[in-house]
Simulated scan of single mutants.
Amino acid sequence: MATKRLRDSANYNENVRNSILDKRVTSLFKKAEELSIVLSKLVTHEDYLQKKVDKKEEQISKLEKLNEAKEMEILFNQLVEGKSIDELDAREMKGLLKLFAQKGTIATLGDGSSVESAQKEGNGVNVEDDGHFKDLD
């Protein structure tokens, strides 16, 4: 609700002017408080959304790593079956080296014919000379 403007303040006494000023100041403080409440809700909502985005990015990162590991497992099996190492690009070579380091497998893949194992403790999987996995239960 709009208040009347003071056109001729000389006609009003000091008390009236002070009461109008007090009402305006009170109104401004009330509006400032409402604005701060709205802004704090927006900040809270923004924090919530940022946490959700971070969580989804972490899930995507995990899935990408899992996907790469599975690709390297498939590539490793293809090499064991006779695929030439010359057909690999740099990313595949790097991924295979990472896979070998994780599995503890040392491979001689000149022509894909011989694969030997150097099993780490607690690995639970052994690669035999014919290239097939054997579970150690």
Rank of each mutant, 00 (worst) to 15 (best):
A107I: 12
K41Y: 08
S27M: 10
N67T: 14
L99E: 09
V53G: 04
L66F: 01
V38F: 08
K30C: 00
S61P: 01
E87P: 00
G82C: 05
Q50C: 01
N77I: 09
Q78F: 06
E68M: 14
L21T: 14
S61R: 09
E92C: 02
L88S: 03
T26D: 05
G112C: 04
S27F: 04
I106V: 14
V115H: 07
E92L: 02
E128T: 15
V115E: 02
K56A: 10
E33R: 15
F76L: 06
M93S: 03
S84H: 10
S19T: 10
K70W: 02
A101M: 09
L79Q: 02
I85E: 06
A101E: 15
D89Q: 04
A90E: 14
V125R: 10
D129Y: 09
V16T: 13
T44M: 02
F100Y: 11
I106S: 09
S27V: 00
T105F: 10
Q119I: 15
A32Q: 08
A107C: 10
V16W: 04
R17T: 14
S27H: 11
N67M: 07
D8Y: 06
Q78S: 06
E73G: 13
M93I: 15
E58P: 00
K4P: 03
K94F: 05
L6R: 07
K31M: 02
A90T: 12
S40T: 13
S114A: 13
V16M: 08
E116Y: 12
K23W: 05
M72L: 02
Q119K: 07
R17I: 15
N15G: 12
K98F: 08
V53A: 06
A90Y: 04
E34M: 12
I85T: 11
F29K: 15
E46T: 07
G95A: 03
A32V: 11
V16C: 09
L75S: 03
D47I: 08
I37T: 12
K4E: 01
D86A: 15
G104L: 10
Q59F: 06
E58R: 07
D47C: 00
D129M: 05
I74L: 07
E81R: 06
L42I: 05
E121A: 10
R17F: 14
E116R: 15
E46N: 07
V115P: 02
K41I: 02
G124F: 08
E116F: 09
K120H: 04
R5H: 06
R17Y: 09
K56T: 07
N126A: 09
I37W: 12
M72K: 00
V38E: 09
A69F: 14
N15W: 01
N13D: 15
L66Y: 01
I37D: 01
T105D: 11
D22H: 05
D89T: 03
I74S: 06
I60D: 02
D47W: 06
E46W: 04
F100G: 08
S36L: 11
T44Y: 07
L21C: 11
N15T: 13
D54E: 14
M72A: 04
K94C: 01
S61D: 14
E116L: 13
L35V: 05
K30V: 03
G82Q: 06
E128H: 13
K62G: 00
T3S: 13
E64N: 14
D129P: 12
K103Q: 10
V127Q: 08
V53P: 02
L35R: 10
V43L: 09
L79T: 01
E73P: 07
S84G: 04
S113Y: 08
E81F: 04
E33Y: 13
D54V: 06
R17H: 10
N18P: 03
G124V: 10
